[in-house]
Structures are given as structure tokens and as C-alpha cells.
Write a protein that binds this DNA or RNA. Structure first.
Length: 317
DNA sequence: GTCCCGCATA
DNA sequence: TATGCGGGAC
């Protein structure tokens, strides 16, 4: 390579970065992606608002739930609790019941959102935090969500690094499967002061063109000429830890408990047991002791309340 | 079976 | 650093 093509990926001068083959001219790569995104992208309702609260709700809902299932839940949620003050004033159980009723997954996230709204009303005096560091103080808001909200609401975020971005960087620039490496490359490739469009665009790329099944040509991927995977044909993706199966899991029964309590206001222990599994037998392997264990965890998670009344055990949200 | 725009806690 | 956390779509 005595006479390298300027379009070819090259190591930075000095070879100071062993992480990846970043392009020689990052602006070409940046502009190509932004132009691709602006020419055509999926329309989600939260992309049409700059309300940080509405965006936070969309991000928390989206964390482990498919986007298509989030749209109607997001609209219903904001219809019911339009501001952080409204949400902070709500009963925790109502928020958890809403979450369960809309099949949004991890019910803890309903609690986090409710808690975050309370923090905004108290610790932040109703003023929504604007920086990633301040946002990350909110319950349930980690590095990903903090940068996403700071970017989409305030154009004030750092590079988002989620599984989509990791997969894109791993394939395009041959970044090693290492969190620190992803963080460095993601930061370096993002143009300054453009976190809103950039983080939208790179996640759109990961969702539309560079998913598990790559659609480089169909989606008109703007990075084909620089992409390591496109050149080698190796579209391996970073390892994502595989989850234990959901069927028969503890999580499945937690979910059933929360859903039933959302429907029934309050339920006695054995009634609940028989409704969440057909083989419930009060003194059997999956009986009162087993169910009390689940309820204890749910209580410690702040999702459920348990009360002993007249020798009966009563549970409610 | 696998995947999906993470986070809190120990 | 490792583990728990829901549920629908494919």
C-alpha cells in the first residue's frame, strides 16, 4: 500500500489506534450517513418531539421491547400522564398496572420511570436535566438512555453506544468486541454538536440496514464503500449474551402475578397461586412457599404490596 | 429456539 | 464482574 486509495480505510497517522480501521476522511463517512438518514427513515412519533419527558418515556419503553409495540403504549402513557408532575403524582401501582397491561416487559422499568419523575419534581425542582451526567442521576437512566435523551431532546449528547451501534462499528470498522473500544470509536466518528441527527442516524442504520440480517444493498447502506464486512463478506456480529428461556421461568410467573394484580385490585395468596399456574398446590413444590418467595422479591422490587389480614395473605399492586 | 434502541444491584 | 428482569415476534 505505497499509494493508498483515499477511500480505503487506513490506520490513523502514527497507528495510535489499534482498535479499528477508521476511514482516512471521517467527514466523508459522517456526511454519507447523515444524508442517507435525512433522505429517508422510519417515522416514529417520538422523533417529532423535543420534549425530554416524552423522549425519556420512549427510550425506557424501547430498551428491551420492539419499537412497533411501543408506539401505541407511548401515546397512551403520555395521554394519561402528560408531564413529569402528572407521573410523579400517580400511584405507583397504577403505573405498574399500565406497564403490564401494555405488555411492555420488565415491570421494574415502570417503577424507575415513576421514581425518575419524582426526582425531577424534587431534586431538580421540575426542571428537566439537560446533560448526560445529570440525566444519568435519574433512576433507570444509564449511559445509553442519558445520551439518547440529551441528544434527541437537547442535541447535547455524546455518542450513543447500544447493541445496534456496536454491531455497526464491529462490522464497518472491524472494531474489536470490547466496550471500551466501541466507546472510543463511537465518540471519534460522531461529528461535534450533531448528536441529535447522528445518534438517530447510526441507530437507524443498525436497525434498518445493518441488523442481524444485513440488507446493505436493499437499504442502500451509505457505508458500503468503507465497510470491512461488505468487503470481506463476513457479517459476523458481536456476541450478545443469550437469555435463558422464558417459558417456565421465574420471570414468566412474576409477570403473571403483576398482570393479575393489575386486573383484580387485590388477591388472596392461594387464589393467586391457582391463577398463575394450573399445577399450584398450596403444600406442594410450587405452593405457598414458592409463591411467597416470588411475592417477597416483587415487594422488595417495589412492585407489589403484601399484607396479612385475618390469617390470610393478601397481595396488591 | 432466537432476537430485541439497558439498567440496578450485589 | 455477574445476574435478574417480560413478553411478543420471528
Amino acid at each position: 500500500m505505497a499509494d493508498p486509495d483515499p477511500d480505503e480505510p487506513v490506520e490513523p497517522a502514527g497507528g495510535s489506534d489499534p482498535d479499528a480501521a477508521l476511514p482516512a476522511d471521517p467527514d466523508l463517512v459522517r456526511n454519507a450517513l447523515i444524508e442517507w438518514y435525512e433522505a429517508d427513515h422510519r417515522e416514529f412519533p417520538w422523533r417529532r418531539t423535543e420534549d425530554p419527558y416524552a423522549i425519556l418515556v420512549s427510550e425506557v419503553m424501547s430498551q428491551q421491547t420492539q419499537l412497533d409495540r411501543v408506539v401505541s403504549a407511548w401515546e397512551d402513557f403520555l395521554d394519561r400522564w402528560p408531564t413529569p408532575a402528572d407521573l410523579a403524582a400517580a400511584e405507583r401501582g397504577d403505573v405498574v398496572a399500565f406497564w403490564s397491561d401494555h405488555s411492555l416487559g420488565y415491570n421494574n422499568r415502570a417503577k424507575y420511570l415513576h421514581e425518575a419523575a419524582t426526582q425531577i419534581e424534587t431534586a431538580y425542582d421540575g426542571e428537566f436535566p439537560r446533560t448526560p451526567d445529570e440525566l444519568a442521576e435519574l433512576m433507570g437512566v444509564g449511559p445509553y438512555t442519558a445520551n439518547a435523551v440529551a441528544s434527541f431532546a437537547f442535541n447535547n449528547g455524546d455518542a450513543v453506544v447500544d447493541t445496534n451501534v456496536k454491531r455497526v462499528l464491529y462490522r464497518a470498522f472491524d472494531v474489536p468486541d470490547d466496550d471500551a473500544a466501541f466507546e472510543r470509536v463511537a465518540t471519534r466518528v460522531m461529528p461535534d454538536e450533531e448528536s441529535r441527527v447522528w445518534n438517530n442516524a447510526i441507530m437507524e442504520l443498525g436497525g434498518v440496514a445493518c441488523g442481524k440480517r444485513p440488507r446493505c444493498d436493499e437499504a442502500g447502506c451509505p457505508w458500503r464503500e468503507w465497510c470491512h464486512a461488505y468487503q470481506t463478506g463476513d457479517f459476523t456480529a458481536p456476541d450478545v449474551p443469550t437469555q435463558p428461556s422464558f417459558e417456565g421461568s421465574r420471570r414468566q410467573f412474576r409477570g403473571r402475578i403483576v398482570r393479575l394484580l393489575g386486573e383484580h385490585d387485590e388477591m388472596e395468596l392461594d387464589t393467586l397461586g391457582h391463577r398463575i399456574r394450573v399445577d399450584y398446590t398450596p403444600d406442594g413444590e410450587h405452593g405457598r412457599e414458592w409463591l411467597r418467595g416470588l411475592l417477597t422479591d416483587l415487594t422488595e422490587d417495589g412492585l407489589v404490596e403484601v399484607e396479612d389480614r385475618d390469617g390470610e395473605t393478601i397481595a396488591r399492586l
